[in-house]
Design a protein around this nucleic acid. Structure first.
Length: 954
RNA sequence: GCCCGAGUGGCGGAAUGGCAGACGCGACGGAUUCAAAAUCCGUUGUCCGAAAGGGCGUGUGGGUUCGAGUCCCACCUCGGGCACCA
């Protein structure tokens, strides 16, 4: 025994001195947390570099487990935050016991908007605020007993972290996408192709004859990071540019309610669209939840179809259509209000109404414009276009349901085959021409007489039908019934007549990468006198974020739409000006004054965990290959388990995949994907209560009686949602540590439901997990002396069988991250054990040791304490997980239900391998069954050996 | 609006297409106690019934199947995302 029998301090006199109370738990927990820290229990060895440790590395398989890292909020953690962290910790600890070299740590996504807003209102530097928030979160998380390698915890705001974020930006900036090789290549290789004449310049002018600025412009147009004019939300009243979430639905600032104007600014974009196909196709090789893959597929939105040119008085207009086979039914064109041809096409007569319409559309958000439920609006330009297949003159409309950002910003409308076009055509009295004859069933369903005259149709027909009225002198689709065949025939015709071609478009847009903020990574970019952008040399990195004297921007006239937006860094004029030698002697340059978005750091942070102290590279290639490299041919490589909320399903996960692929193409990483396996945790939400005036009241003071919720004698209304200050429903981990201890808290979070489901927090339920740990403790420890009561007595066979069933179940549930059912199985076994211990006063070691081992991933502190109290010297952390004995898993007999017409009418006990005939015979022998069969005719019998018997009677 | 997901006892939840409600909370009853706390034992979907037993039950309505919480169709409600919150 390693423990003395001295009672713990502060033991309440009316309880046994060694009862497992919150107070004893707290002592045990802080003791083991200190021990793990001193021993470096969770220090994980690397194969190379400063963190290498060959003896600890051994020949173990590896497991790299990552949580989506948190933004260090000033409010600290509430009980909802650690759900995923506990889940990954349990899994990581389980994998250690299964013999894996496990890497698990947690960093901080510490750039971002809230710190900057905090700085604006308080004047406190975001760095100071951020660092104190991180310190608080580290304290709260340490108390939770997470087995993290603390040496590897990084923050995106660390200078030696964002140095590499900037370095990666330079890699993206210094690369172009080679469509032929379908990968990114260094921009230098493109310059060589141009200078050696292997690639023609866009204008055809030889490379040697171009000016330096002209060459610069051509090269820049190929880069994966490029500059373009893009709109920002400029709020002169605040003197700042606002994020979308800071702008209200009616186009005013959330803070101060000032007008917000859309203004164009020169901004960096990332050419993520170049990777659209690979981002889409490689999803098939990832172990991700299918709904998340689907969301990414929909987001990328690849659709194949054709680009078709319609001639108009202002020139040819390209439209993109997924249904070129319906071209003969195109009876009007619709342009997006932002389409460049709108002004030149509009006739004088129509000008006033078109301009008014465009102005009104400009004020709307894209997703409002696509609202299918609202009435379709639009306005006639006065001009017509020529349908290339039949020469028909068709009117050109402007309508806001067509978006400039998708396809070509212009569509051909086929009202007979598209419901949106159909509604528009009906509303504006435009012709509707059928190109396919619907089947009789379609007419029957709509209760109309079959006719190709669309005037009688109630809606568009979108199904398969025989093509009609779809022919000109040189092509005919008539009589075809396959969309595929008709499409390929018409695309071929369009291509030979140079009126269009088959093409693919994507819904995915390039990534707007600039933010007009202070608290983000500065771009490692400078501009020369002619406005050309240059990369800052690698040896100059990091470009440090300069100090800012005053975080409050200067407010301007709130209604001055024409004032120029000024990003915070532009106010630091002596920082903006810099003298650099970029190879042609020291010259004056102007720094980029935008900063990177918060996504930047989160696009690659998991790799820095692997090699956090490397000063030469963002990661050592050997280290990357060990932890993230592909496991076999065709494997993408990447993190073995990535856990986080679904809210990141698209953006974060798409952006980081994109950066990773660029780094892979350029040879910096061996893995093709950052996250091989993804798991989405649910949210913990909470009830909140409001009084009659709608004011939130403290949720922890609300009592329930007779289905009513009462606060201070007053009836209050309950609602369900996120935990938050304003709802007065926050429960913190600190309160849970105080009241129950970290192990009970961990257990409750894992027991309350499956990890991927959202559920409400209920403090009242936590006690169940505490009682379980107390019963388990009491099965091992004498509550009066604190010493072990474990004996070497043999265990009854029934309990041994139960133990091995439990081991088998726990192991597979752990592997599947089903911790809630792991806990249920442990409780069931412990309850059985409790009966044995209380009746026989014997606590067999052969049962206790595996139980403590199985408990340890979930409740590591109490498990280590029990392990030590039953005479073990080391932490249970690396002790191999118990193995179920197959001989003890086999059952002699199993109970099988007997159904009559699908309803259970009796049960039989049979051997697990009993055959169909035996089972049926036994079933008919059951009294309740034979009674139910009395006077009935057996129609059919269904026997599933080992499962059930069903007798169908009449 | 579009995309994704979820609806099971009083509550959190369990259930390879095969015994619905494991496990926990709460509630009720009992043991122990001078009394309480703590602990232990039992009951607890619902309706009918004294009981034995039976009817009904997994958001709503249909369907597939010998058999559906589970699969299919439609609908309702709630949650997440919609590109500058992360």
């Amino acid at each position: 025994m390693t423990e003395s029998a001295t009672p713990p301090a502060h033991s309440p006199s009316n309880l046994p001195p060694f009862r497992y109370t919150a107070r004893l738990a707290a002592e045990i927990e802080s003791k083991w947390q200190d021990s793990w820290e001193t021993e470096g229990t969770f220090h994980t060895p690397n194969p190379a570099g400063p963190l290498a440790d060959p003896t600890r590395l051994g020949t173990k398989p590896k497991a790299f487990i990552v949580d989506m890292f948190p933004y260090p909020s000033g409010a600290g953690l509430h009980v909802g935050h650690p759900l995923g962290y506990i889940g990954t910790d349990v899994y990581a600890r389980f994998k250690r016991m299964k013999g894996f070299n496990v890497l698990h740590t947690l960093g901080y996504d510490s750039f971002g908007l809230p710190a900057e807003q905090h700085a604006i209102t308080t004047g406190i530097h975001p760095r100071i605020n951020t660092e104190s928030n991180i310190a608080n979160m580290r304290r709260q998380l340490r108390r939770l007993g997470l087995g993290h390698d603390s040496r590897r915890s990084v923050s995106t705001t660390d200078e030696d972290f964002y140095k590499w974020t900037q370095w990666i930006f330079l890699q993206v900036h210094g690369a172009w996408y080679d469509e032929a090789r379908n990968k990114a290549r260094p921009i230098q290789e493109l310059i060589e192709e141009f200078s050696q004449g292997l690639r023609a310049t866009p204008s055809g002018t030889p490379w040697a004859d171009l000016t330096s600025s002209e060459r610069h412009a051509i090269i820049d147009s190929y880069r994966l990071a490029y500059l373009t004019d893009a709109p920002v939300n400029w709020c002169p009243g605040l003197g700042t540019i606002l994020a979308n979430e800071e702008v209200t639905a009616d186009g005013r600032s959330d803070i101060g309610n000032y007008p917000v104007f859309k203004r164009n600014m020169r901004q960096w974009m990332m050419r993520i669209t170049a990777y659209a196909d690979r981002l889409l196709d490689d999803l098939d090789r990832l172990d991700w939840p299918e709904p998340i893959k689907l969301m990414q597929r929909n987001w990328i939105g690849r659709s194949t179809g054709a680009r078709v040119t319609f001639s108009t008085p202002a020139g040819g207009i390209d439209v993109f259509t997924t249904r070129p086979d319906t071209l003969f039914g195109a009876t009007f064109l619709v342009l997006s209000p932002e389409h460049p041809f709108v002004a030149s096409l509009t006739t004088e007569q129509q000008r006033a109404s078109v301009e008014a319409y465009c102005a009104q559309a400009a004020a709307q958000q894209d997703n409002e414009r696509q609202d299918d439920s609202k009435e379709k609006t639009g306005v006639f330009t006065g001009a017509t276009a020529t349908n290339p297949v039949n020469g028909a003159q068709i009117p050109i409309y402007v309508a806001d349901y067509v978006l400039m950002g998708y396809g070509t910003g212009a569509i051909m409308a086929v009202p007979s085959g598209d419901q949106r076009d159909f509604e528009f055509a009906r509303a504006y009295n435009l012709p509707i021409v059928a190109t396919a004859m619907p089947p009789a069933s379609w007419f029957a369903q709509h209760e109309i007489t079959p006719s190709s005259d669309c005037a009688t149709w109630p809606c568009a027909f979108t199904g398969d039908g025989e093509y009609i009225d779809s022919a000109n002198d040189s092509v005919s689709l008539n009589g075809l019934t396959s969309i595929e065949e008709a499409t390929s025939r018409i695309v071929e015709w369009l291509t030979t007549h140079q009126l269009g071609e088959g093409t693919t478009t994507y819904r995915l847009r390039d990534w707007l990468f600039s933010r007009q903020r202070y608290w983000g990574e500065p771009f490692p970019i400078v501009y020369d006198d002619e406005g050309n952008a240059h990369a800052v040399p690698e040896k100059e990195l990091p470009v440090l974020l300069p100090e800012l004297a005053d975080f409050k921007p200067t407010a301007l006239d709130p209604n001055d739409a024409h004032s120029d937006p000024i990003p915070p860094l532009a106010r630091i004029t002596d920082w903006m000006q810099v003298t650099l030698d970029l190879g042609d002697g020291p010259r004056a340059y102007r720094r980029e004054v935008n900063v990177m978005p918060q996504w930047a750091g989160s696009c690659w942070y998991e790799m820095r965990y692997l090699d956090p102290t490397n000063t030469e590279r963002f990661i050592d290639p050997d280290v990357e290959r060990y932890w993230m490299g592909p496991e076999h041919e065709g494997h993408t490589g990447g993190v073995d388990l990535y856990v986080g909320g679904v809210e990141h399903a698209v953006l974060h996960l798409l952006y980081s995949r994109f950066w990773h692929k660029v780094l892979h193409d350029l040879g910096h990483v061996s893995s093709e994907e950052p996250f091989h396996r993804l798991f989405n945790q649910g949210y913990i939400q909470a009830y909140a209560y409001r009084d009659e005036r709608g004011q939130a009241v403290p949720a922890n003071e609300v009592v329930e009686s007779d289905g009513q919720y009462m606060w201070n004698g007053e009836t209050v209304a309950r609602e369900y949602g996120k935990m938050g200050k304003s709802l007065k429903n926050i429960v913190t981990p600190d309160e849970m540590y105080e009241e129950f201890g970290a192990d009970t808290f961990r257990l409750y979070e894992m027991a309350m439901g499956p990890l991927d489901a959202s559920r409400p927090w209920n403090t009242r339920d936590v006690v169940g997990m505490q009682r379980f740990l107390q019963r388990l403790w009491r099965n091992i420890i004498d509550e009066d002396t604190g010493t072990s009561i474990v004996t070497n007595d043999p265990a009854p066979e029934e309990l041994l069988r139960h133990l091995h069933r439990t081991i088998a179940g726990v192991e597979s549930d752990m592997d599947g991250l089903r911790f809630n059912t792991v806990i249920a199985k442990l409780i069931e076994f412990n309850n059985a054990l409790t009966q044995h211990v209380t009746t026989t006063h014997s606590s067999p070691r052969v049962l206790i040791e595996p139980l403590v081992q199985m408990l340890s991933p979930l409740c590591p502190h109490v498990a280590d304490e029990l392990w030590s109290r039953i005479g073990k010297s080391d932490s249970v952390t690396y002790v191999p997980f118990p193995v179920a004995d197959p001989a003890l898993l086999a059952e002699d007999t199993i109970e099988i239900p007997v159904q009559i017409n699908g309803k259970v009418r009796g049960r039989i006990l049979a051997a697990p391998d009993a055959g169909e005939d035996t089972l049926l015979e036994m079933a008919r022998g059951v009294e309740s069954v034979s009674a139910a069969l009395e006077g009935k005719t057996i129609v059919k019998t269904v026997v599933v050996p080992g499962r059930m018997v069903n007798i169908v009677v009449k």
